[in-house]
Design a protein around this nucleic acid. Sequence first.
DNA 1: CTTAATTAGTTCCGTCATAAAACAATTGCA
DNA 2: TGCAATTGTTTTATGACGGAACTAATTAAG
Lengths: 385, 385
Amino acid sequence: MRITTPRWTPGNGATRAVALEVLLHGPLSRSEVARRLGLSPGSLTRLSAPLLESGLLVEVGEQADGKVGRPSQLLDVVPASKRFIGMKLMADEVLGVTTDLRANVIATGSRRLKGRDPASVVAVIAELVTSLRHGMPDVTALGIGVGGLIEEHGFVRRAPFLEWNDVSLGTMVEAETGIPAIVENDLIAFTEYEHWFGAGRGLDRFAVLTLGAGIGYGLVIHDEIVRNDEFGIGLVGHWPLDPFGPVCSEGHRGCAKAVLTDTAIAAAVSQALGKQVSYQAALNLAASGEAAARRVVDDAGKGLGKLLAAVANLTMPETVVLGGEGVRLAEIAADAVAAGLRADRDPRTKPIPLTIRSGDNVEWCRGAAVVAIQTFVLGHRSDEN
Amino acid sequence: MRITTPRWTPGNGATRAVALEVLLHGPLSRSEVARRLGLSPGSLTRLSAPLLESGLLVEVGEQADGKVGRPSQLLDVVPASKRFIGMKLMADEVLGVTTDLRANVIATGSRRLKGRDPASVVAVIAELVTSLRHGMPDVTALGIGVGGLIEEHGFVRRAPFLEWNDVSLGTMVEAETGIPAIVENDLIAFTEYEHWFGAGRGLDRFAVLTLGAGIGYGLVIHDEIVRNDEFGIGLVGHWPLDPFGPVCSEGHRGCAKAVLTDTAIAAAVSQALGKQVSYQAALNLAASGEAAARRVVDDAGKGLGKLLAAVANLTMPETVVLGGEGVRLAEIAADAVAAGLRADRDPRTKPIPLTIRSGDNVEWCRGAAVVAIQTFVLGHRSDEN
DNA sequence: CTTAATTAGTTCCGTCATAAAACAATTGCA
DNA sequence: TGCAATTGTTTTATGACGGAACTAATTAAG
């Protein structure tokens, strides 16, 4: 079964461009949209009419600006007019959110997996979908973020944490739920969230780093995500950060995996203290001034700073977003991060604005929802058929 | 005086897109161009007619492909129909080339500077222009590559090697020569050469590294160069490559400047041998097996490999071009480069194809010519007025 | 209070790029 | 020789666009 994603607008490219501009940067007046897109005022009347007619856009009041001249009528989308579901598929659990057209979270939910075989995972996903759409208007599309190599927005080529190879997850979920499903690499999804609705909105270039069980990396350049077959394999995971640091499982001394991951930090602090502590406990100890924990966490912070410097030097981003469950490191060790940045970055360069996300797992789900929104709005999938 | 660059074609965007496609990827048949640009066959007849009429494109024979069907008529530009000059402005010398529309070198020349004040530099440039256009048809545009921060394709904001700040070089050269002049950062120019006519032709992503007195870095992503205000200041110059390496002038241990530049290598080999040797002599000694030189050169090669790994990990290029006067290092120390790459790159990743340029200074001039060609073909300057 | 200036948005029309379809041209193959 | 395949041209209808003239709504100036 192949469910076709309904396009946002049947109209042509310019109509869609208007709608997209309002979705991403609205509310905007017609004349402002015309300026941004390089269209004539007359064209904007023509293009916005069917969008208003269909109810996708609405006029949401005037804007006077205090200047002379007729006040402009602001156009905006109605975010609540559409529902999307975004999910993060993990090794033993699925998290999900219901969002509106701008990826604002309306509801959340989760289910434990009963097994790792595709059929049972799909069954759990379908259960969660049922729960998340309960009492909601129709859900337009469903996005699923998976750590691994995804092809064609639906085919899981490799997902090591589930021990999957070549699973048609998208097709299976569509068959089970009846909702168009888009599968995407979780980091790409997270990055697209920042791109469309987060800290990267309207920027030409930015980078994403996530901390947690692994180190993730995403990049947007020229207002478009940089995709790569090799996403999901260690692009920055084994980056050398500290020539005198600990050794990772594959023998790299002081690599990102050995210095920056939550397990590495928890293990190092545990060893120093002679007792088992969790990652968050290790951070708490460091924050409260415990010397050994402080040293480990500062080393990690400095490593993060060096990684940030590397990203900044080579990709020249306008901002960098830090996310992932382990992101609190960047706050606890802020000084060390700054020191690491200073060490590897020319002092004449401008400082890079950092955005630190909450570390909540819901962020990943919003990313997956954004992938669904994008497919719906841009009609990507149809383009690729 | 403001000389306006003549546009390539007065026509609209689609006409220009056809001409550009043929310039960059030609010769091509009409149907092939139609496929690449997503146009109908009828449109291609219409669009190509005025280009053939104007003499910019010509039919250059048939292509049968051994298949059935009517053979296609290949369209191509006539490279020799236009002349461009490209120059590299250095601390005490100007190099220049005359090229055709595809940046093929027709003539070369050089002049020593008589001083570093803008007026005398412009006079020398004008002299070189006169020499380079001698006996040639009209020169369409002139590109000048300058190490430093350039604005608006003509204004030298900073050029440390000439001790210049805020020099309207483009306007001055235009006034002196009567030829539209485009000034650009030398690395951007070099990168654009590779982008349009070199190893990066047709690629979505690639990176450029140049070796010499400094370490240069250029990046193309999504078929467009990544520009940055900070080009020219040390983005990769002080990259940490070797925690046990020598110290640079600014106190970084084992940074790119201390390990990879020609002066650093020459100095290290000289010190080891107790006598002054040049960079090229140092490479020759290493190639012939002299142990101390071999060690220094291999250390540098390993550093280059690590830098390549960093670029590859963070920008995911389809290829990397190595250029600059010091590029022979990459050949002499090929094994060490490979070792450095291996050390910092996940073994599961695909190897990155390397292109090693000749190291001839003419390469930089071709880059400057490409910038002139681009401005002429795309009419960039006009867009920005 | 009136008028001018300014900006927003609409209506209408001519232009022109485009796709579609029919057709001509050229080749390989049966 | 006839048919299939492919390239390229011609013709035609559609429709998107910009531009101009217009209406609308507001402020500033007199």
